[in-house]
Nucleic acid binder design. Structure first.
Lengths: 114, 114
DNA sequence: TGTAATATGTAGAAGCGCAAAGTATCCAAC
DNA sequence: GTTGGATACTTTGCGCTTCTACATATTACA
C-alpha cells in the first residue's frame, strides 16, 4: 500500500500553521516534520509546500527571517504572527468539528440497499 | 457559533456516497440528511450538491431514476452502483487515515522545539 | 394571489494542491 | 575535481472542486 498524500484543500494550511507553532522552522523542515509525525501518511510535495508558505505569509499569518541552519546553510525561518496564532486556533477548531461531523455520518449503519 | 460549512475538497463526494448508500434518495433529501446527521455542521449549498451528483453519476458511482416522492413530486432518486460501493469504501478508508494523521499532528504539544 | 418549501439545474469565479521545471549549496565518494 | 545525492527555495501552469448567484418548476398553505 503506497502511502497516498493528497491533502484536501485547506488542510495543508492548518498543518503548516501547527508545525510552525512548535517553533521557528524553515520550509524544508516543515515538510519533513509533517511526514514524520504523521507516520508517512502526509507527504507534502515542494510544489504544494512553498506556495502555501507564501500564501500564509502574504496573509500575515507567518513571518520569516533568513538565518543559518545547523548545517550552516541559508534558510528562511518562519514563525507565527499573532494573527497566525488566532488563525491556527480557528482552523483547528473547524477541523475538529468537521472531523466529528464526518465521523458521525460515516458511523451511520447502512440500511437495506435497494 | 455560526455553523460554517466549507467542506474540504473530496469530502463532499464521500459524504454523498455514504448517504446514498443508506438507500435510494433524491438530491434535496441528501442535503437535508447531511445537515441533520451532522448536527448542522455540514450544510451543502445546492450549487455544490447538484454538480457533485452529476460528477458522481458521470463517473459511474451513482445511477438515478425519476420517481415520485412521498409528497407526490418528481424527483431523481440516486442509488449506488457496484463501482460506487467500492469507491465509498476506498474514500472512507482514506478519510480515516487522514483524520488520524491530522489528529496526530494537532495533538503535538506546542513548544516541542529542538 | 402570493409566498414558502420542495426540487433540479447552470454559469462564472475563485481557490487550492500538484507536477514539473529551475537555481543553488554542501558533502562524500570516486 | 567532478560527479551525485541531500538539502533548500522558487515559479509557472494545469486541473479540479467548491461557492455564489441565478434560473426554473411544482406543491402547499394562508
Amino acid at each position: 500500500m503506497p502511502p497516498k498524500s493528497d491533502l484536501p484543500q485547506g488542510t495543508l494550511d492548518l498543518l503548516i500553521l501547527k508545525t510552525v507553532a512548535m517553533g521557528p522552522v524553515h520550509g524544508y523542515a516543515i515538510g519533513q516534520r509533517l511526514q514524520q509525525v504523521s507516520r508517512d501518511v502526509v507527504q507534502v510535495p515542494q510544489g504544494s509546500l512553498y506556495p502555501a508558505l507564501h500564501r500564509l505569509e502574504t496573509r500575515g499569518y507567518l513571518a520569516a527571517d533568513w538565518k543559518l541552519t545547523e548545517t550552516g546553510r541559508e534558510a528562511k525561518f518562519y514563525h507565527l504572527t499573532r494573527k497566525g496564532r488566532v488563525q491556527l486556533e480557528t482552523e483547528a477548531e473547524s477541523w475538529k468539528r468537521l472531523a466529528e461531523a464526518v465521523g458521525l455520518i460515516l458511523q451511520v449503519p447502512e440500511g437495506a440497499a435497494e
